[in-house]
């Protein structure tokens, strides 16, 4: 097996990563780049905890091979906060009481960020639809949806 070099943009900075082809984007981000906010919950594209913003869209990074990310623009939760301070979406999650165990939260926030980038003033229906690929076992989702609405109201 020959190693490959993946060139892409991660959190607004160009990176090149030398990596075995049998690694997922999830592994590359967590292990090679140390971006451990990206969580592995199900390994089958089901829970959404490993969601990253990939060329502007939320995707599950457990379903992408590292090599496929060549040329991609990737944002993880580490790329959302500024100097360790929460951005408007993160702040809204904190204030709304949307965070319990927090394992789903990186994926939730990134999914919300991707929605608000494209549609800064979504309806509640659009919020629900956008957030429908992220499982949470703690909150019953209400406070999470309220947090996205609160963030949108401050956009």
């Amino acid at each position: 097996m020959n190693k490959i070099t993946v060139h892409c943009t991660v959190n607004h900075k160009p990176v090149s990563v030398e990596i075995e082809p049998n690694k997922r984007l999830l592994d590359m981000l967590r292990v090679n780049l140390g971006l451990t906010s990206v969580k592995e919950g199900c390994s089958e594209g089901e829970c959404g905890a490993c969601t990253v913003i990939y060329n502007g869209e939320p995707v599950t990074s457990c379903c992408i091979l590292a090599g496929q990310a060549e040329g991609a623009d990737i944002i993880t939760l580490e790329g959302v906060s500024v100097d360790g301070k929460p951005d408007v979406v993160q702040q809204a999650f904190i204030e709304s009481g949307a965070i319990q165990c927090g394992f789903c939260i990186p994926g939730m926030i990134l999914t919300a960020e991707a929605l608000l980038m494209k549609n800064p003033h979504p309806t509640m229906e659009q919020i629900k639809e956008a957030m429908s690929g992220n499982l949470c076992r703690c909150t019953g989702y209400k406070k999470i949806e309220e947090a996205v609405a609160l963030a949108a109201s401050r956009m």
Binding site: G45, E46, G48, T51, Y54, E57, P58, V59, T60, C63, I64, T111, E129, A130, S132, G133, N134
Partner: peptide, 9 residues
């Protein structure tokens, strides 16, 4: 199909 994330992929 699946979820927004899966439909994007």
């Amino acid at each position: 199909v699946g979820s927004p994330q899966i439909r994007n992929l």
